[in-house]
């Protein structure tokens, strides 16, 4: 399950594609709007699903070495976010789905991979 697969299933607008978005497998999902909670995650190759569209979202994703960020509820990136996404080589997408529906969809995709 790559970032590209997730982007497709959530019908994402792609604001920034990073260098590994078609190759690296997403192994773990963190769904949260509170960044300190995201920092607790210890897993590698994670994707952050959030409704928080500030520069701090990308700074947090960068610290935990996330592969990318999906903004839910159709949230547009705030100014500066795309520049930071490029600087940190992070994928940055927007989906119209809610966080709950995005989680459910990504989970189905993960399950599909396993079967």
């Amino acid at each position: 399950m790559t970032l590209n697969d997730i982007s497709a299933i959530l019908s994402c607008i792609q604001h920034n594609k990073n260098t590994i978005f078609e190759t690296e497998a997403v192994e773990h999902i963190v769904a949260s709007d509170l960044m300190s909670e995201v920092l607790i995650a210890e897993e590698e190759n994670l994707l952050l699903i959030t409704a928080l569209n500030t520069e701090q979202t990308l700074r947090t994703a960068h610290i935990v070495d996330a592969l990318g960020v999906v903004l839910v509820n159709g949230k547009r990136p705030q100014p500066g976010m795309i520049r930071l996404a490029k600087e940190f080589d992070l994928a940055l997408f927007t989906t119209k789905s809610s966080m709950f529906k995005s989680c459910a969809a990504v989970h189905s995709l993960m399950n599909g991979d396993a079967n």
Partner: peptide
């Protein structure tokens, strides 16, 4: 703003 979850110092 995405903060104030009370996890800062514990983190």
């Amino acid at each position: 703003m995405g903060f104030g979850a009370g996890m800062g110092l514990p983190n």
